[in-house]
Amino acid sequence: MPSEFELIRRYFAGPTPQAVLGPGDDCALLAPTAGCELAISTDMLVAGTHFLADTDPCQLGWKALAVNLSDLAAMGAVPRWALLACSLPDARPAWLESFSQGLHRCASRYGVDLVGGDTTRGPLNLCLTVLGEVPAGAALRRDRAVAGDDLWVSGQPGLAALGLAQLQGQVALSEVLSMRCLAALHQPLPRVELGLELRRRLLAHAAIDVSDGLLADLGHVLERSDVGAEVFAAQLPSLPVGVDPGLARACQLTGGDDYELVFSASPDKRYELAALAAELDLPLWRFGRIVAATADRLTLLDETGQALAINGKGFDHFG
């Protein structure tokens, strides 16, 4: 069994061309780009809470980094560096080889250097910290939505939650749909390219990634911007065929773990956003609008304009 430092050298150390000094010293040394602000985020993935004990380690390595990169995407930041702190119950070479392969594959896909971290023995717990760069004053934020904005969401929110529901025995999905949902759950694609283009082209006012549920995360934007929203159920992405519509809609609205982007934009940006969706080959759905703040903040409307009940609030570790 490898020692702590052999483990780091064998599975996690590697070239760090974007760093002045990478792993191996007390600190990494980084040189931010002139005129840029640093965007920094950290997330933990805990066995039994964020992933099942038998999750494929290669997929877990990808996801551990991808969910953090999604935070950078939501702010229009360019990913640059990452640090991994983890506790491991043991140092099984086969598991570590597979996990590190997934981690490095995700890092390579998004241009990230792994510049440091820490390992210790304990219950399986993965904590990634990511750093990105954004031109000073240009970051997408949660507090910039204004009344009159359209609301947009990328991709197909709800698939990851359906995949989890299948793993928990709550639903039986067709083979094709199961593959899509489990891929969304285990290997999410952070919408880095979308976030960068929304920021570069000045297309979005406010943005957030969907980690705890579409309505829950939209609620953070509404609170920070002191506005309300009307969500039109008929304009949300089509629900998967062959699944109970109530379950599918609940997964879409409150399921979480999608890592899509929700953003607000002026109505005069609709043509440009349609062109961007085609350019990125990524569906963008206009599903609501920002309104003046109301007591409830958010209203879900059916195709006739009647208010629908909202069941569930999204994921909350302490809720």
Rank of each mutant, 00 (worst) to 15 (best):
P2S: 12
S3E: 09
S3D: 11
F5A: 15
L7Y: 09
L7D: 08
L7T: 13
F12T: 04
P17C: 07
L21K: 14
G22W: 03
G24I: 02
G24F: 04
D25T: 13
D25M: 13
E37Q: 14
A39K: 09
I40F: 08
D43L: 15
G48E: 07
A53Y: 10
C58Q: 13
W62F: 01
L65R: 05
G76N: 07
G76K: 04
L84M: 09
L84S: 07
A85N: 13
D90F: 12
A94I: 07
S98A: 14
F99V: 09
F99T: 06
F99D: 06
G102E: 03
L103T: 10
R105F: 12
C106R: 01
G111W: 10
G116W: 05
T120R: 14
R121L: 15
L124N: 05
N125W: 14
G132M: 05
E133V: 09
D143S: 13
R144D: 09
R144M: 11
A147E: 04
A147H: 06
D150H: 13
L151V: 07
P157A: 03
A161R: 03
A165E: 02
G169Q: 00
E175N: 03
L177H: 02
C181R: 01
L185A: 00
H186F: 08
Q187P: 00
E193I: 10
L194K: 07
G195A: 00
L196I: 10
E197Y: 08
L198M: 00
L198K: 04
R200T: 11
R200C: 11
L203R: 01
A206L: 07
A206E: 03
V210D: 09
S211C: 07
D212S: 09
D212V: 00
G213H: 00
L215A: 08
G219Q: 06
G219H: 02
V221I: 15
L222G: 02
L222C: 10
E223K: 15
E223H: 14
F232G: 00
A234D: 14
Q235W: 11
S238F: 09
P245G: 07
A250E: 11
A250T: 12
Q252T: 00
T254V: 12
D257R: 08
D258T: 07
E260W: 03
V262M: 06
V262K: 01
F263Q: 01
A274L: 15
A274S: 15
A275K: 13
L276M: 02
A278R: 15
E279I: 07
L280S: 08
L280G: 08
L280K: 08
W285H: 14
R286T: 04
R286M: 10
A292E: 11
A295Y: 11
G305R: 12
A307N: 09
N311W: 11
F315T: 05
F315P: 00
D316E: 12
D316Y: 12
H317Q: 13
H317M: 14
F318R: 14
